[in-house]
Nucleic acid binder design. Structure first.
Ligand SMILES: Nc1nc2c(ncn2[C@H]2C[C@H](O)[C@@H](COP(=O)(O)OP(=O)(O)OP(=O)(O)O)O2)c(=O)[nH]1
Ligand SMILES: [Mn+2]
Ligand SMILES: [Mn+2]
Length: 387
DNA sequence: CCGCCGTGCCAC
DNA sequence: AAACGTGGCACGGCGG
């Protein structure tokens, strides 16, 4: 994957850059008008002094060091109190896209190949996932419309080829259903349910793509131990409402709560946890940990077991997919891995075959108590293939 | 000039 | 920000 590389449409990216840069300048001048004072919006300390000293807005949250925070959740809570708040939020969105992606990615294009060659690090994460660096191609934007314009600029390494994407459906929830013993979650997946959509419908009354995406965050935050307070802030509802959502979740899937406790107990007694394929992560001081430190380690232990097992499956799938492509579609090859997604490239006429091979490799990676499902797509660029 | 820390935010 | 987790990275601020 590293050697094969991925192409970046620098011309289109240049267009995105000009639009975002213009927009950012507009935001900066409007923000200074709103604040009535000169301010560098890239400086959290300057933004905080405008928000909380100059404008006198309430301090809502604190940073790790105890200073007043101005992060996105705080800005969300302050929205409507002063026009400066929304301008800071918008500035953060646009400046992030420029500084991390639009302004940086072109410098990673190799003068030799004309492609971007990331590093996929195999011994960095604590759970067995890969990571990607220089540049990180596992966090290319997709959430906002402006971000999607960036994703649209990624294409197959060979001109004329297409990208083929295959992404596991609800992967860690399926792994959890496997690990958590018989129950409603396992039954749901045997009936091919979409729990993300189910949660979206229950919480928002809609399963639109945006609501499903938010429901995903709700589902994973709940299974990994979110507090009513934390969920309330994420959803913008009061603690009572959030508490009700969590309680209904565990009432519907009591085996999830039971698994959390049993996983913690086993990790404590063995001093380690193991994934489905036997990858170990040590938790030698869980047994002696107390208070918030212990709670935090408990969440890490459960997450490691599930996330690490999902990473196991993905690695098996990649071995099989690479081998089959080699034999069956030699003009195709793996290009990227994004935790539960494989991106390959091939001539357009072979896209359907390649998608089938990726699907079979991933769905058949390992037999679980629930079926594994994969969504595939292809197109000229990554957004078309994945989106 | 360089490296570190704190803060913040992108993705899964 | 907070009792979801796993990452990488940019910037400002500061000190060597
Ligand atoms: N703890 C935690 N894990 C997450 C979060 N977002 C994603 N993940 C993990 C769990 C997911 O199963 C896995 C793959 O992410 P995806 O975006 O592909 O979501 P998922 O496969 O669950 O749903 P999908 O059917 O592909 O839309 O990454 C999160 O906010 N918190
Ligand atoms: Mn997925
Ligand atoms: Mn995915």
């Amino acid at each position: 994957m590293e050697r094969r590389g991925v192409s970046l449409d620098s011309t289109s990216l240049e267009g995105v850059s000009r639009e975002l840069t213009d927009l950012l300048g507009e935001i900066e001048s409007r923000a200074e008008d709103a604040a009535g004072i000169r301010v560098n919006l890239r400086s959290p300390s300057q933004v905080s002094s405008v928000l909380f000293d100059h404008l006198g807005l309430p301090r809502i949250g604190r940073t790790g060091k105890g200073a007043a925070s101005s992060d996105a959740t705080v800005l969300q809570a302050l929205a409507g109190l002063h026009p400066f708040v929304g301008l800071v939020a918008e500035h953060r969105e646009i400046s992030k896209l420029i500084s991390t992606y639009v302004g940086k990615l072109p410098s990673f294009v190799s003068p030799v190949t004309g492609l971007i060659h990331t590093s996929f690090n195999q011994a960095v994460t604590a759970t067995g996932r890969l990571s990607s660096s220089d540049p990180n191609l596992q966090n290319i934007p997709i959430r906002t419309e402006r971000g999607r314009e960036i994703r649209r600029c990624f294409g197959a390494p060979r001109a004329g080829d297409v990208l083929v994407s295959a992404d596991y459906s609800q992967i860690e929830l399926r792994v959890l259903a496997h690990l958590a013993g018989g129950g409603a979650l396992r039954r749901a997946y045997r009936e091919d349910a979409d729990i993300h959509s189910r949660t979206a419908l229950a919480v928002f009354g809609s399963s639109s793509p945006e609501h499903r995406r938010k429901a995903k965050e709700i589902n994973f935050s709940i299974i990994y131990g979110v507090s009513a307070h934390g969920l309330a802030q994420r959803l913008g509802v009061d603690r009572g409402t959030a508490s009700g959502i969590i309680n209904r979740y565990f009432a519907a899937y009591p085996e999830v709560d039971a698994y959390f406790r049993s996983c913690v107990a086993e990790t404590e007694s063995r001093g380690e946890t193991r994934t489905i394929l036997g990858r170990r992560r040590l938790f030698r001081n869980l047994a002696s940990a107390r208070g918030n430190t212990r709670k935090s380690m408990e969440r890490m232990a459960v997450n490691t077991t599930v996330q690490g097992s999902a990473a196991d499956l993905m690695k098996l799938a990649m071995i099989r997919a690479a081998d089959r492509l080699d034999r069956e579609v030699p003009e195709a090859g793996l290009v990227l891995q994004v935790h539960d997604e494989i991106v390959a490239s091939c001539p357009p006429g072979r896209a359907e075959d390649v998608a089938g091979i990726l699907r079979e490799s991933m769905e058949g990676a390992y037999r679980l108590e629930v079926p594994l499902r994969v969504e595939t797509g292809w197109g000229e660029n990554w957004l078309e293939a994945h989106g």
